[in-house]
Simulated scan of single mutants.
Amino acid sequence: MATSHLTASLRNLPAFERFQPSTHRFPFAGHVRIATPTRTSFPSFVVKAATVVAPKHTSVKPLGDRVLVKIKDAEEKTEGGILLPTTAQSKPQAGEVVSVGDGKSIGNSKVDIDVKTGAQVVYSKYAGTEVEFNGSKHLILKDDDIIGILETDEVKDLKPLNDRLLIKVAEADEKTAGGLLLTEATKEKPSIGTVIAVGPGPLDEEGNRKSLSITPGNTVLYSKYAGNDFKGKDGSNYIALRATDVIAILS
């Protein structure tokens, strides 16, 4: 008896992807009439992938006492020319002021921000909110987080703002009282130094500047873990801190 072959392909039916094509044999009895299958509707699925689209801004205007700073690129090499991996590159603490807010109100007075557009500034290490703008990294921070203005590459030229001081740190003792040499890890961090520069002073409740009692040339004792540390080009260590972190003036 002759037979006729019918192959049913299910590859293109998403609802039956788990089935394999099969071949069915039918007895041949003259003509075989196969009814045309009716069209069956299968539920369709729409997958929407989450897409993050970076907004394109033409300007960023900081509000109040906030400042927009373009971050200076991190150093990619040591002074000896050795390339640094990303994890070893020191986080920048300097940049250029791009825009400033309208200032803040203290009492009945309106106080303007101390820095102007274009100024090169140094700020606290973990201050502000980082944003991408015009293809570069920027920081929005409060003007009080700005340590000072630095127009050169020399840390000693820093001009502190508000109630901050710039201090040249005394060198750490390299020997114990018994004469033993100390390694860098065991040297005690100094908390004594000479004041290099002082800020104009903090604002009082009426928005007026209150001069600091500390002056350049003073030798001071300060809180051990206060402030922000900097290394000068001559290898000297500097620290910028608030006047309230100074414990005593030594003479």
Score class of each variant (00 low, 15 high):
Y123R: 00
N134L: 14
V115T: 04
Q120F: 00
Y126S: 12
V169G: 01
K159D: 13
V169D: 04
K168M: 11
I167M: 03
A119L: 05
I147S: 02
G128M: 08
G128V: 08
E151N: 13
S136G: 06
K168W: 04
Y123I: 01
G118V: 02
L150M: 11
A127M: 01
V131K: 11
R164I: 11
K125F: 01
V115I: 11
L166Y: 11
K125Q: 04
V131E: 13
H138S: 11
H138W: 12
L139T: 04
A172L: 07
D153P: 02
V122G: 00
D144W: 03
Y123Q: 01
T129R: 06
Q120I: 00
K137M: 07
Y126C: 03
N162Q: 14
L166M: 12
E151V: 02
I149R: 08
K142V: 08
R164E: 14
V115M: 05
D114H: 06
L161S: 12
E171D: 06
L158T: 10
E154R: 15
V121H: 02
Y126A: 04
A127T: 05
T152Q: 09
V155N: 01
I147D: 07
K125V: 01
N134E: 14
I147V: 07
E151C: 02
S136H: 14
K125I: 01
F133G: 15
I146G: 10
P160W: 14
L150V: 06
G148D: 10
K156T: 07
